[in-house]
Amino acid sequence: DEDSERELEKLRKNNASKEEIKEVLKRLGFSEDEAKKLAEKAG
């Protein structure tokens, strides 16, 4: 959803580590696997 998109955008701009991105995604309700895949894509 839009909030998670914004959250990811912010992380990308701040050069967050894949680990940080994954944690945020998991907080947003993604499964471990989904979060890992998305973090890879974002990283």
Rank of each mutant, 00 (worst) to 15 (best):
E2S: 12
D3I: 13
G43E: 11
K37I: 12
E32D: 10
A16E: 03
N14I: 10
N14K: 12
G29I: 00
E34H: 04
D33L: 05
D1A: 12
E9F: 00
E20W: 07
R27E: 10
K10H: 11
R27C: 12
E9Q: 05
N14W: 00
K26Q: 14
L25E: 07
E23G: 03
E5N: 09
I21P: 02
E20R: 07
G43V: 14
K18I: 15
G29N: 01
F30G: 02
E7L: 15
G43P: 10
R6F: 10
K36F: 08
L8I: 09
A35T: 03
K37Y: 05
K22H: 06
D33Y: 02
K37P: 04
E7A: 12
K26R: 10
E20N: 04
E20I: 06
A39D: 05
E32G: 01
E34K: 02
G29R: 00
L38N: 02
A42E: 14
D33A: 09
A42M: 15
D33R: 01
K36I: 14
A39P: 02
E19T: 07
L8T: 04
G29Q: 01
E19S: 07
L25V: 04
R27L: 08
I21D: 02
F30N: 03
A16M: 10
N14Q: 11
E32I: 00
R6V: 10
N14H: 09
E7F: 13
E23A: 04
E5H: 11
E20P: 00
S31I: 04
F30E: 02
K13V: 08
F30L: 08
L11T: 08
K18V: 15
D3P: 08
V24E: 10
E40S: 05
L25T: 04
I21V: 05
F30D: 02
L25I: 06
S31C: 06
K41M: 13
A16L: 10
E19A: 08
K36N: 15
V24S: 11
S17Q: 05
K22M: 14
E40T: 04
L38M: 12
E32K: 00
G29P: 00
S31Y: 04
E34C: 13
E9W: 00
R27P: 04
A35E: 03
D33H: 06
L25K: 04
S31G: 06
K26L: 10
A42I: 15
K13Q: 11
L38C: 14
K18H: 10
L28C: 13
A35F: 06
S4L: 15
G29W: 00
A16F: 04
A42V: 12
E34T: 07
L25H: 04
A42G: 09
K13W: 03
G43H: 12
S31D: 08
K13G: 09
R6L: 09
N14G: 12
S4K: 13
E20Y: 06
E23H: 01
K26Y: 00
R6Y: 09
L25A: 05
N14E: 09
I21F: 07
L11E: 04
D33F: 01
L38Q: 06
L8P: 01
E7Q: 09
K26A: 10
K13M: 07
E7I: 15
N14F: 00
D3H: 10
L28T: 01
S4A: 15
S17E: 05
E32Y: 00
E40G: 04
K13A: 10
L25Y: 01
D3K: 12
F30A: 02
V24N: 08
K13C: 14
E7D: 08
F30I: 06
E34L: 07
S4E: 08
E20H: 07
K37H: 10
A39Y: 05
L28H: 02
E20Q: 09
R27I: 07
L28G: 02
A39R: 02
D33Q: 08
N14C: 15
S31F: 03
L8C: 14
E19G: 02
K22N: 07
K37V: 11
L25R: 03
K26V: 14
E32S: 01
D3Q: 11
N14Y: 01
A16V: 06
K18S: 12
L11V: 08
G43L: 13
L38I: 13
R6T: 11
D33T: 06
K13Y: 04
N15T: 06
A35G: 03
D1T: 13
N15R: 06
R6A: 12
D1E: 11
K10G: 08
E7R: 05
R27G: 14
R27D: 10
E2M: 13
E34Y: 07
N15M: 09
K10M: 09
F30Y: 11
V24L: 13
G43W: 15
E23D: 10
N15H: 13
E9K: 05
E9N: 04
A16K: 06
E20L: 06
A42N: 14
E5I: 14
K22Q: 05
K36A: 14
K26S: 08
R27M: 07
D3V: 12
V24R: 10
K41G: 13
D1W: 14
G29A: 01
A42K: 07
E7T: 10
D1S: 13
V24H: 14
R27T: 06
E20C: 13
G43A: 13
K36W: 05
S17I: 05
A16S: 06
K26T: 11
N14P: 04
E20V: 08
A42Y: 15
K10C: 15
E5L: 15
K41T: 11
E9L: 00
F30W: 09
R12Y: 09
L25G: 04
K26W: 00
N14A: 13
I21S: 01
L28E: 03
K37W: 01
L25F: 01
R12H: 11
E2I: 14
E2V: 14
A42L: 15
E19D: 10
K22F: 15
E34A: 08
A39W: 03
E2R: 12
E23Q: 03
K41P: 08
K10E: 12
L25N: 05
K10T: 08
D3L: 11
K10Y: 04
L28S: 02
L11A: 09
K36T: 15
A16N: 02
K18L: 14
D3E: 11
A39C: 13
E23S: 02
K10P: 01
R27W: 01
L25W: 00
E32Q: 01
K18R: 10
S4W: 15
E20F: 06
R27H: 09
E23L: 02
G29M: 00
I21N: 02
L28Y: 01
A35Y: 06
V24Y: 11
K37F: 03
E5K: 12
K41Q: 13
L38R: 06
E19Y: 00
G29F: 00
E32F: 00
E19W: 01
S4F: 15
K41F: 09
K10Q: 11
K41W: 10
A35H: 02
E7H: 07
K18G: 07
L8Y: 06
K10V: 03
K13S: 12
L11K: 05
L28M: 13
A42F: 15
I21W: 12
L28A: 03
E23V: 01
S31M: 04
R12M: 13
F30S: 01
L25Q: 01
S17C: 14
D1R: 14
I21E: 02
G29E: 03
K13P: 06
L8W: 05
E9T: 03
D1Q: 14
E20K: 10
K18F: 15
K37D: 11
S4H: 13
R27N: 11
L11N: 05
E5V: 13
L8S: 02
F30V: 04
E2L: 13
A16Q: 05
R12K: 08
K22T: 13
R6K: 13
A42D: 11
G29S: 00
N14L: 08
E20M: 09
D3N: 10
S17Y: 03
E5F: 14
R27K: 14
A39I: 12
E23N: 06
G43S: 12
S4Y: 15
N15Y: 01
S17D: 08
S31Q: 05
E40L: 00
A39F: 07
R12F: 10
G43I: 14
K10A: 10
N15F: 03
L38F: 05
K37N: 11
N15I: 06
K22C: 11
R6W: 09
S17N: 06
E23M: 00
A16P: 03
K26E: 14
E23W: 00
G43M: 14
R12A: 09
S4Q: 10
E5D: 11
R12Q: 12
A42R: 08
E40F: 00
K10D: 10
G29K: 00
L11Q: 06
N15V: 05
I21R: 01
R12S: 08
A35P: 03
L8D: 07
K22R: 04
N15A: 09
A42C: 14
K36S: 14
E19K: 03
N14V: 08
L28R: 01
E19I: 04
G43T: 14
N15E: 08
N14M: 09
D33M: 03
K18T: 12
L11D: 07
F30K: 02
D1K: 14
E34W: 04
K13D: 10
E34M: 09
D1G: 10
